[in-house]
Design a binder for these strands. Structure first.
Lengths: 232, 232, 232, 232
DNA sequence: CATGAATGAGAATTCATTCAT
DNA sequence: AATGAATGAATTCTCATTCAT
């Protein structure tokens, strides 16, 4: 697994605080400035959602934000810069989320833990859907953006791998590899749902994901799950 | 302003027959023409690989194909048109592949069937990797491509769903939903591997995918698998 | 591919207010902008005159206006758009002119009214000659321009028809049809003169047109005219 | 009045005999060749009608003629060359027509002569309408093509002027100038009718034109016309 | 802070014409 | 005689970025 991809514009990742592009960061923003910055970020979100990363024009963003071209460059170096600002937030929150998965035993409790965690992932994914979609698009051509943020994925991977290692997993499975497979399934399935490539409801998605992974990776068995459900 | 340009519809999927873009299909090609067409398609593949869909310039393609700008437009209406021609091929082969999955029982034989199928998927995916990557990038902005992709996904989904239905799958799983989850995992994990987002070798990937899905979806159990392995 | 380009509708006719092309109308122009707009319109006039509509290049216009390519598209969607802006002006003034023809009796006063009106037509026609010539060239291929031209013609026609109806016109003449014949003669003869297809001076052209139409359509007679001329 | 415009490719004007472009003229055509030439000329007619002169592409012509690009250039030097070939025919027939106008007296017979002549003009104009429309469009930008063939117009003018001179025309009219005014009215009114700028039927157009010109130019009076009509 | 204006490099596309078979 | 193929100059149009007010 390759190491974390270095950020091109190394900027401390911390949402809501460091928000705003390079040019803006060298200045202290008064309330009017903050308001404009906020409008630009929101407009970016809206525009990337509507058009996708490549098709999004600075002009579109500026129109949505009801401000001028000149102003845009007062806050961001360029479109990419604005995009990084948005990505930072996702990255940070995703990282936090990845850390929050507790031990996943083969029993009912493990199942519940896993499902609850996937539930939080669903929420987070949905909240940042526009950015994530654009990210998916951008990363293909711009290697610097990394495959859905390689750092995000690998952070998820590491945590999951740890949890697998603790569990009674099936023979022939390498925890690190299994973790990646899980990330793939979780991320993409949510992606399908978000992009409406398929129509699927929340409970169904969560039940299915949780079950497959619990049984397939964490040694949960149908029987054991049923017994324990009955016993508890 | 200029004459009526008929918008291109997603063509009937049938590679090698449908080869070439809209303009090319309206003319009879002699051997020289076919050769040029081939060179352009190959050049497209190469260029999309190197640059990605958006960054690819008709100019790049033309250079690789060692031909002129004008000639390009003799065969394709534009970059997108060429891309469709490539996509058609992938789509067709993927469709064929999806049909080739046999019944997947809970025992060793089922496991082998699944793994062999994933093995073929790996090959195919790798062969068309450049196109697939570009596709991922293109579909966000161009809705037509998105829907086209959806068709491929759902075709996979249907076949897998049928196989799940026949099997002794865990409680709490809906075959249709599970099928989608599987597609997500399979496609994306291969994607990670192909894009080198993660370093992983073929056997590991296949073993892991096959095991998780077999155990998690098709009712394969660790024990049963080991027993049968011992027994055969 | 690129975002939705709204097709331009023939605009409400009202010069000086509607000044400028579609893009320009969506922005508020400061004095600098207005100045540039004016330069572009003038340059369009000059260029269409020199080259004709089809042969006119945006590049030519831009050079004459001493500005850049990009700037052109800041004010007009394309060459046609600029042309519409010019046409609007002609149309409006022509419409105003057509309304200004008073009653044309068979006597000397009627003759003078008619001639004075043709005199104003001559001036107007000359002022907008470049646009009108280009229009003649453009309308064949672009149907929208054709219909637009038809509107101007019919507006003239209606007014003239009314005047004919009031008069003592020759038997066998339908006022509506006669009006169109008049428009044909007036417009084309001026066109010949303007394009220098024939060398002819103002007074001659006006006397001749006025006489033929007065006698041929409005019931003016040689005798009556002479008598009255003597009498007055 | 300016002299006849010299032909750029001086070619003996004689329809159906000299038909075909420069390249073709240097070769003797066998029946196959004549057939192809015919198809190209017809295709030119069709295409100019449909698209107008400027928008017509060699490609369009070639498609309509069901032949190839290469073949086109076997017969014509370029689009203009083909156009000249078509124009030659019109020119020749128009010239013949202009000569056929007999004396136009102020009485009924003169009226009939004039109307009959306009009737022939109507037919001819309609037959060559596609070429004439294209010509109108082309001449504006390409001065070599002359204003509706200045030579055609001036030939008409000379004949009409002669007829006016013989007649009892109103005071204040110069025969040469009046002739031009007449040509303008006749040509343009037919143009309106042909292009459907106005809906008008043949009899109405002819009656009106004949009446206006007869009364307005040739000294025909309402009364005299009626008397004579009654008397004859 | 904000903004309208200007710029020009770059990309796509068209089409008349020539060429080889 | 016919034709498919190739060419590339010429044009249009876009859009990120800079600048003056």
């Amino acid at each position: 697994m390759s190491a974390d991809v270095p950020r091109r514009n190394p900027r401390k990742v911390s949402a809501s605080v460091t928000r705003g592009g390079a040019p803006a960061q060298e200045r202290k923003l008064r309330s009017q400035g903050k308001e404009t910055l906020r409008r630009l970020l929101d407009a970016g979100m809206v525009t990337f959602e509507k058009r996708g990363y490549h098709a999004a024009r600075v002009d579109d963003i500026v129109k949505v934000a009801k401000t001028s071209h000149g102003t845009f460059y007062l806050y961001f170096a360029n479109k990419e810069d604005l995009f990084w600002a948005l990505i930072s937030d996702v990255t940070e929150e995703m990282t936090a989320l990845s850390a929050s998965l507790g031990p996943v035993g083969g029993g009912r409790k493990g199942y519940e833990e896993l499902r609850a965690w996937l539930d939080k992932f669903w929420d987070l994914y949905r909240r940042y859907a526009p950015v994530i979609r654009a990210w998916t698009e951008a990363e293909t051509s711009d290697s610097e953006m990394g495959t859905f943020g390689t750092q995000v994925l690998s952070r998820f991977g590491r945590r999951l791998a740890d949890r697998v290692r603790e569990s009674e997993h099936p023979a022939g499975i390498d925890p690190d590899v299994a973790a990646l497979a899980m990330v793939a399934m979780i991320e993409r399935f949510n992606y399908y749902a978000v992009t409406r490539a398929v129509e699927i409801d929340r409970a169904q998605l969560l039940d299915t994901l949780a079950t497959i992974l619990h049984v397939g990776v964490f040694g949960g068995t149908r029987n054991r799950r049923l017994e324990q459900a009955a016993g508890s």
